[in-house]
Simulated assay, not measured.
Amino acid sequence: MLSERMIQNFSNLVSIDSISRSEEKVHDYLKKKFRDLKLKVTEDNSKIKTSLGANNLIATLEGTSEKEPLFFSCHTDTVSPGEGIEVVEEDGKLFSKGDTILGADDKAGIAIIIEAIQQIQEQGIPHGKVEFVFSPGEEIGLIGSSALKMDMLTATNGYVLDSGGVVGRVTIASPTLYMYDVTISGVAAHAGIEPEKGISAISILADALQNIQIGRLDETTTANIGVIQGGESTNVVLDHMLIKGEVRSVDPQKANILIQEVSNYFRQAAKKHGGSVTIEIKRMATGFHINDDENVMKTFLKSAKNLGLEVVREVSGGGSDANSFNEKGKKAVNLSIGYEKIHTTDEYIPVEEMKKAVQLVIEIIKNSPNKME
């Protein structure tokens, strides 16, 4: 019966379209849902700044015992194709009908939280204050969580339910991510009659690329150029190009050095050839690394042991809302909740993994240290 209830909650959630920047309806649903569960519901006014479809939402389960407060976090937006999602169950796994994503990333996390709250209330499990954070715009750059004012949260330790693979995996480190746009400007000229009068953006790019590193640079550092655009005709010296790239490293200092090197190499190449460059750099995420001796991990490790879960510590190459929390002084790790093949129409999640995730959330809440500890 509990599984059926959880599956129904999940199906209800994914049936509400919430592609990034269109999260309003699912937030309205969650506000009613949590108020029905007697939680206090608050929200910020961040959508004025973010232009997302909703504000950050916090549902608070007031404590019944003197334990340290905790927070849990999920994001409410999905990627495309994410409209008209219908859930089907096959061999204990939940899929979409096949022409959309499933949306387990991250609505499975939300369904897991709802089920955990219901079981805590029904079983009368003692607990400290627990704050549940729901943020829009994660899929397009952690926008919602980055705009959240952390003084809205009492808890200093928390868990993001937004990672794939079997329950027991925990992301303890994630990279600082910079994205950059480089506009190269040269001088156009007829390529057959007077190419000498032109300054080729291609020459500037080729010069810069001799020095710029791409690919895997070390175990926790990568760099990539993913977009090169420019040119309209073969008989014109190419005078403008747009380059889009990124650098990532778990070591923030290394990421900072790399992005400065990229910028310098483009500027040097432009100067050499007599052209110019405009460079726009955006820091999309700030990296973090959580050790076993920090309270957020101590509570997780104790809880996983109690449930007999195999713990696998992972270093992610991507970002999550955990990056935003850690950047702003809240210790958070990202927990796996069972989904697989996200962002594809083959996405699925085993029901048994969802059930394990529910028990893990409950166990973490039970094992939150007493305030005096």
Rank of each mutant, 00 (worst) to 15 (best):
M6P: 01
S18R: 05
S20I: 02
S22P: 01
L39D: 02
D44P: 00
S46M: 05
K47V: 03
K47R: 13
I48E: 15
T50R: 04
S51P: 01
L52R: 04
N56W: 02
F72A: 12
P81M: 03
V88F: 11
E90I: 07
L94V: 01
F95M: 11
K97G: 11
I101T: 02
L102T: 03
L102E: 08
G103V: 03
A104C: 13
K107W: 03
K107T: 00
A108M: 03
G109A: 02
E115P: 00
A116E: 07
Q121A: 07
E131G: 06
V133W: 02
F134Y: 11
S135N: 10
S135R: 02
E139Q: 07
L148E: 07
M152P: 00
M152S: 08
G158R: 06
D162V: 07
D162S: 08
G165E: 08
V166L: 13
G168D: 15
A173H: 08
S174T: 08
T176V: 06
G186Y: 08
A189K: 15
G198K: 12
D207Y: 01
Q210W: 08
N211G: 02
Q213L: 11
R216H: 05
D218R: 04
T220K: 13
T221Q: 03
G230S: 14
G231D: 03
T234W: 12
V247N: 01
D251Q: 06
P252D: 09
Q260H: 12
R267D: 12
A269Q: 10
A270Q: 04
K271Y: 12
G274Y: 10
S276H: 08
A285D: 12
G287W: 10
N291T: 14
L301M: 12
S303H: 09
A304M: 03
N306I: 06
E314V: 11
G319C: 11
S320D: 06
K328Y: 05
G338F: 04
Y339E: 08
V351P: 13
A357D: 13
Q359P: 09
E363M: 13
N367G: 01
S368A: 15
E373C: 05
